[in-house]
Design a protein around this nucleic acid. Structure first.
Lengths: 208, 208
DNA sequence: GTCTATACACTGATAGAC
DNA sequence: GTCTATCAGTGTATAGAC
């Protein structure tokens, strides 16, 4: 898809929009800067001018989405963290719901696929970027999990969180997602998905 | 490392040997055909002549690994499938243990990562290759899970298997793998890993 | 500051001579 | 079967136009 040239949108934003789409369609390696800049209607060199490198562009695509996603997660966590009546389900809901809401619209779903690709492609620099910029989110959730699961050793808890993260990332990337049947509404399907993920995560985290 | 030229080894095998080594060291994207053929002591064009493309060479390099991996899995499954005393742990052990053994050495670990990547990539030719050649393995395991979990609906079972698969793929790709401490032996670490994965999978599959 | 044209050093792939 | 030569495509860097 070639975006119509629109002078009201900056070159930088045109590149970011085309990049998110093309990365999701072809992967990071598969999407060339020439194709990307052609779709965006900008010059090839504009990418390096505005972002420094293709790699930095990838990071910027992530930053736009992840900032919003993780703010939502932390806001939801803040509403339940530390309270005596808070359950594991509440914390998992705070983690899962924002991601599920994000993957509801088309561009959000595209982003979740990009995120899943990033995990799968095992890109070291991208990993470091994610860890450096969003590690605090995972640490806050981990702290709350630790509070609710005092019987687990640190090592045991990290293992379980790691496995749950893998399962959720996989599921939310949409690859293995069981397709919604036509007689189930979009919202009902999302509720059902949230239930499956949360129940599974509770079982994985809290088994004896 | 540049392999000494040895006329008793065919060009094809020289390429395969150099490829497995270089892919393990630098990754599939990072290993160029020029470096690979230089190390193997063969001409650049020999790769395309013998294998058709770099991608086909990649497939050939770890087709042997997959054959061995899935043979081990099916052999282990065959020893427990259908027996009245078989537990969920037994079946999961049959699935997990061979993969864990494989990811023990460096090139095996890289292979598991590529496997995880192919798993997450929707339209990749590599994924089609995997599905076409090894889909029957997953079907056999699914059938045995269904036998051991008769209380679950098909839909419910597929959900849980999907989530467990995501968790195991993630863990075995090494992305989030908790590093072995220096005072724990390699074998002990692997045993502990197997225990964690199996316990987690049992909880995720069989929770009420 | 923004943007563009262009060159550079790479990549995998391939046709054709031997 | 194996080689050389060459091709189209890649990310990146930079000089210079506005």
């Amino acid at each position: 898809m070639i975006l119509p040239v629109n002078s009201s949108v900056s070159t930088k934003d045109r590149i970011l929009g085309a990049a998110e789409l093309l990365f999701a369609q072809r992967g990071f390696e598969g999407a060339s800067l020439r194709q990307l800049t052609t779709n965006a209607g900008v010059n090839l060199a504009a990418v390096n001018y505005h972002f420094g490198s293709k790699e930095k562009l990838v990071e910027e695509v992530f930053r736009r989405r992840l900032d919003a996603l993780n703010e939502s997660r932390l806001a939801a966590l803040a509403q339940v963290a530390g309270a005596p009546e808070t359950t594991l389900e509440d914390v998992l809901e705070a983690f899962i719901r924002p991601a599920l809401d994000l993957s509801h619209d088309d561009s959000g779903a595209l982003f979740m696929r990009v995120l899943a690709r990033a995990f799968a492609e095992h890109d070291d620099t991208l990993r470091q970027f994610l860890s450096a910029n969003y590690g605090h989110v995972m640490r806050q959730f981990t702290a709350e999990f630790a509070r609710l699961l005092p019987q687990l050793s640190k090592q045991e808890l990290y293992w379980r969180i790691d496995l749950v993260t893998g399962a959720l990332t996989h599921a939310m990337s949409g690859f293995g997602m069981i397709q919604r049947k036509s007689d189930v509404s979009e919202n009902a399907h999302r509720e059902q998905t949230a239930l499956h993920l949360i129940r599974f995560a509770v079982a994985g985290l809290s088994h004896p």
